[in-house]
Computed example of a mutant assay.
Amino acid sequence: MDIVLSNVGRFFDPLTFVLVLGSVLIMAWIQNGRGSFVLALSALINCGRDPFAESGENATFMCRRIDFVLREEGFLGLERVRSPDVFVTRVIQYLLNAKDAKTFEEWARLEEHAIQKKQNMMATYWSAASEIAPAIGLIGTIIGLVQLFATGIDPLKMGPAMSFTLLTSLYGLFISNIVAFPIYVRLQARAEILNAYRAAAVQHMIAIAKRELLIVGPVHFSPQQPLRAAS
């Protein structure tokens, strides 16, 4: 440990570290598509927090609260119901303004799918970064070895090439196992909690919509006058 602390400057090359990290982030962005980079960085703000640790909210409590308001205040009383999750609050407000149960169900299912995809993308980005980082480090190691062999036996040139060779592998493993993978584990756990909560809330509100709102059946064409056969 004393050797590491006394020679910490030798283990950290800012340019090489930024090169490896930048390559990892760019490749993970390419793999996960447009918008994934911004979502992945924004997710770091609440990465270590349980989404409902402070409020004690859960899907069962939320559904029972909705049922209580319906029983005590009626359908319009749902306007005062709020959830710690912005998405669930938005679904409740849309339910109040929905014209029929079928339209609400279609909208809710599409919105649920979109928000789940967005939530999962935050975790999958860091999962991809965790898998890509060792490969980027290995590529840097191979480049360093090629440079090392190209210099021959010149001791003055072997040092920098060997340093680059080892540091890229070190940074790749560090980014993968110390940075990206722990972030992925936390975001994946958070996504599972939120997705389960939202799915249960949406399913409950769809059931309410079918009970409280007009159910529109399939549209059938009914001509104003009977059609006459051509003579």
Rank of each mutant, 00 (worst) to 15 (best):
D2I: 02
V4K: 08
S6D: 01
N7Q: 07
G9A: 11
G9M: 08
F11L: 15
F12K: 13
D13K: 02
D13I: 10
P14D: 14
P14H: 13
P14N: 14
V24P: 00
V24T: 00
I26N: 09
M27V: 12
W29S: 07
I30L: 15
I30E: 09
S42Q: 15
A43Y: 00
L44Y: 06
L44M: 08
I45T: 10
D50Q: 14
S55H: 12
G56W: 11
N58G: 13
T60I: 14
F61D: 15
R65C: 02
L70T: 03
E72L: 10
E73G: 05
F75Q: 05
F75W: 15
L76G: 11
G77S: 11
G77T: 11
L78S: 04
L78I: 12
R80E: 10
P84R: 11
F87W: 03
F87C: 03
V88W: 00
V88G: 05
I92N: 02
I92R: 01
Y94Q: 06
L96I: 15
E106F: 11
E106N: 09
W107C: 04
A108V: 03
A108T: 02
R109H: 04
R109I: 04
L110A: 14
E111R: 05
E111F: 01
E112Y: 06
Q116V: 09
K117E: 13
Q119A: 12
N120K: 14
M121D: 05
A123I: 02
A123Q: 04
T124K: 05
T124G: 04
S127H: 00
E131N: 08
I132V: 06
A133G: 03
A133L: 05
A133T: 00
I136K: 01
G137T: 00
L138F: 12
G140R: 05
T141M: 15
I142C: 12
G144L: 07
G144K: 02
V146L: 11
T151C: 02
G152S: 07
I153R: 06
I153W: 03
D154E: 10
P155F: 07
L156D: 15
K157L: 10
K157N: 14
M162H: 14
S163W: 09
F164M: 14
F164G: 04
T168P: 03
S169Y: 01
L170V: 09
L170M: 09
G172Q: 04
L173C: 06
F174L: 08
N177W: 07
I178T: 04
V179L: 07
I183A: 01
I183D: 01
V185M: 05
R186Q: 11
R186P: 03
R186K: 15
Q188C: 03
Q188G: 01
R190W: 07
R190Y: 02
A191I: 06
A191G: 03
E192H: 06
E192T: 06
E192R: 11
I193Q: 04
N195A: 15
A196L: 09
R198A: 01
A201F: 01
H204R: 10
I206L: 01
A207S: 07
I208L: 04
K210F: 06
L213E: 12
L214H: 12
I215W: 07
V216E: 15
V219N: 14
F221D: 09
S222A: 13
Q224N: 13
Q224F: 05
R228N: 03
S231V: 04
